[in-house]
Simulated assay, not measured.
Amino acid sequence: MVIAVVIRTTVTWIALATTAIFIALRVGNETEWPWIVIALPVLIFDVVYSLVLCLGLWHHFLERSIHIPNNVSSAWRKLWLLFLFILNIIAVVVVCLRLNGDLSSSYSVVCIPLWIFLVAVTGDLTRLLVKDIKRRRDV
């Protein structure tokens, strides 16, 4: 379990660092890559993690079909995280299309998926923090 967290954290940092380097190269006019190529490391991470969540959901419902007790809240949590990752992928692709000039909408319209994603993540983290504070207070 601990090794899985370390691997996921390492892959996350590698994806973010690679994307930051690509952004620096693009902004510094060192390369003329399309913005979707610049965001590719983050997109690959999001797609892979979404597939892992889909497999987790499939396993969850497979266990349910053979009458093993399951945790319903974990299924809803996986669905919620899958929704957030898909929303993040949509936001990154739409912003990249706008930066390339392939999309003519204004930035306020283009960033709607990003704002929904940020509000949802903020609400989720607040809910988790409040739940943790209540749990610690009861102990």
Rank of each mutant, 00 (worst) to 15 (best):
T9E: 11
R26V: 02
C54L: 08
H67G: 11
V52Y: 12
V27M: 12
P41V: 15
R64K: 03
V37N: 11
W33Y: 13
E30T: 08
E63K: 08
T9N: 09
T18I: 00
I38E: 08
A39M: 15
L16N: 11
E30P: 04
V27S: 09
W33N: 11
I66A: 07
R26F: 06
E30L: 13
A39G: 13
V27H: 05
V72H: 14
T31P: 04
N70S: 15
T31Y: 04
A39C: 14
V37K: 10
V52E: 13
A20E: 15
W76M: 02
L25V: 06
I68Y: 08
I36W: 07
V48M: 05
S73D: 12
C54K: 00
F45I: 12
G28R: 09
V11K: 04
N71K: 01
T19Y: 01
F22G: 07
S65D: 12
L62Q: 11
V47L: 08
N71R: 01
W33F: 07
G28C: 08
H59W: 14
T12D: 10
L43W: 02
V72Y: 10
L57Y: 04
A20Q: 15
L16W: 13
H67W: 14
G56H: 01
L25P: 00
W13L: 14
F61V: 08
E63Q: 08
E30R: 13
C54H: 02
F22V: 02
R8Q: 06
T19K: 04
L16E: 13
T10K: 02
N29S: 01
P69F: 06
W58R: 13
R26G: 04
A15I: 00
